[in-house]
Design a protein around this nucleic acid. Sequence first.
DNA 1: GGCGTAATTAATGAATCGTTTAATTAAAAA
DNA 2: TTTTTAATTAAACGATTCATTAATTACGCC
Lengths: 212, 212
Amino acid sequence: MSQSIRRPGRRSGRPPEESRQALLDAARDLFARREFAAVSLRQIADRAGVNPAMVHYHFQGKEGLYLALLEGQFMPLMARLEQISSERSSLTDFVGAYVQMLASNPWFPNLIVREVLYGETALRELFIERFAARAGATLQRLIDTERQAGRLRANLDPASAALSLLSLALFPFIARPVAERVFGIEMDETFTARWVEHATRLFYEGAKEHDR
Amino acid sequence: MSQSIRRPGRRSGRPPEESRQALLDAARDLFARREFAAVSLRQIADRAGVNPAMVHYHFQGKEGLYLALLEGQFMPLMARLEQISSERSSLTDFVGAYVQMLASNPWFPNLIVREVLYGETALRELFIERFAARAGATLQRLIDTERQAGRLRANLDPASAALSLLSLALFPFIARPVAERVFGIEMDETFTARWVEHATRLFYEGAKEHDR
DNA sequence: GGCGTAATTAATGAATCGTTTAATTAAAAA
DNA sequence: TTTTTAATTAAACGATTCATTAATTACGCC
């Protein structure tokens, strides 16, 4: 399979950064589909078109590659999400930017689910403390602002409301592979825009003051 | 680690079904946390308190154990869900029974996510064809009934509505480990009941006819 | 143009994986 | 009670895992 007939030695006309980046890209794609222990170094190296030993040369081992991947790909997106969480003042813009980002980086929700929701790893704590807790608080604050402005009903529980909005915004992209088939939709930019519109409308109408 | 000082031979006063069931239970717990390739036979056997070779005696190997697990634990719950999908006529009852079941079997959403959403396995096809597609259709049918009865707005898209309701019903239990910490909730029976109430109310109010 | 260093590979080692076999004990059958 | 069968284990096997080392090639600097 990985029958590389290449002799050893530095490759000609190729910046060394290329191998490193190829490994990171391959690892990102594979770790989005299967968890750490289930992905082998040879799989990664094969996909990147380099020798497995390169993983140790560049990253000091499998775990080092994983950490570098999180540092280089996961963390920037998380920082971006955190930025969105803090600076947006409109609830709709918040959800929109959120959904936009998840839709255009399909590997991201996968890795979140794998690493944060079900992986009992140190990254979960990091994610919760540094991001989820803050985003949750921001979301509840935004909701409370809307509530005090009279656009949401007075007795609305901020935690339940925040969890609802998160559910509407995130679930379709988490369940993407199945949802696309079951509901015959394709999660492109068109769908993303429509979904943001649909979800926020449903939320606002469902959570506003109403007589019953 | 698995330093069992027990001599070989049949155990006294112990029905053989016990070992088999212990293996299935151990496998269920472990496969809910880590995927197939990441769980070793020795881990399962240790947790079950038997020798790894028992897996081959009872199930003809690791894959056989996995299939037996799906057959014995996953499939019955899926059949129960399918029953709920077909016989309930009220949308609220449907969601209620659904949520109830997910809450009381925490390993089930985990396995669904792992096996169906992200595992590119044969079980995904089975799940989609035999269950998800049918449940999706049933849900859309129920929603359409409500729509024609005037309890939901006339121009509501059944697919989007169904996906919304699913999001509200499922996401909290999929994201359970994080949601519990971020929002300071505990997903016991009390929460379950309140969530069903909250989610269906949000959905009905958000999707009913309203002037804007 | 020669030389040191950086990049890359093949070859190898130690650990662990799933599996198989043979031995051993208890239960069931005769 | 004796014999057969079922259940269980330890031990060993080959395959595959991650990691290491030594050898090889190209690049950059003087």
